[in-house]
Amino acid sequence: MLLAALPALVVAAVPRHATALDPEGAFRQAGGLAIYLAVVPAAVIRGHPPEHTGRGLHGGAPEGRYIHHLLVALFGARTGARVTGAGVTAVVHGLRHMPEARIALEPMTVGGAEAYGGSATLPARDYYRIEIEVLRPGSAAVKAVFPHRHFQP
């Protein structure tokens, strides 16, 4: 009887805002694009050997506390083909710690494919809204919003 009730107890114990924070994960579909976002601590990049793809990104990972690397990959929503040659900007809004920051994401190669990346300062224990803006020649601007919660002490 207790084993049968356990899944319901686990679901009930999870705060509602935690499950609703980002039900879609790090993927959004907008304007005919499939947009993926990864937020990686810069220390991870600094800790890789020099020959690792990404170690020399954008002049290397900056030093400092709370520095993260934003990585965006773009695909055609219908075709699944990688989208290249776009202008990509991240607009980061923090609930508590920071004013809006606009970060131009630079083209980069990850695993032999083009992606876009740049560094952002994300102080700990805050909720963020990261807007990704994509400009492609001959197309309307596309925006996708990703919530991000940062727990690093």
Rank of each mutant, 00 (worst) to 15 (best):
L2W: 12
A4N: 11
L6M: 15
P7L: 12
V10Q: 15
V11R: 15
A12M: 06
A12G: 14
A13S: 06
V14R: 14
P15I: 12
P15G: 09
A20L: 11
L21A: 15
Q29A: 14
Q29M: 14
L33S: 01
I35E: 00
I35C: 00
Y36E: 11
L37E: 07
V39I: 04
R46L: 09
P49Q: 14
P50V: 08
E51W: 15
L57W: 13
L57E: 14
L57I: 11
G60R: 10
G60N: 12
P62E: 04
P62Y: 11
E63S: 09
A73F: 10
L74R: 10
G76F: 03
A77W: 02
A77V: 06
G87C: 15
V92G: 00
E100D: 09
A104H: 05
A104W: 02
M108S: 09
V110C: 05
E114T: 12
E114I: 08
A120R: 05
D126Q: 03
R129P: 01
R129L: 00
I130Q: 00
V134F: 03
L135E: 12
G138D: 02
V142C: 08
F146D: 05
P147S: 02
P147A: 02
H148D: 02
R149K: 13
H150K: 12
F151M: 08
P153V: 03
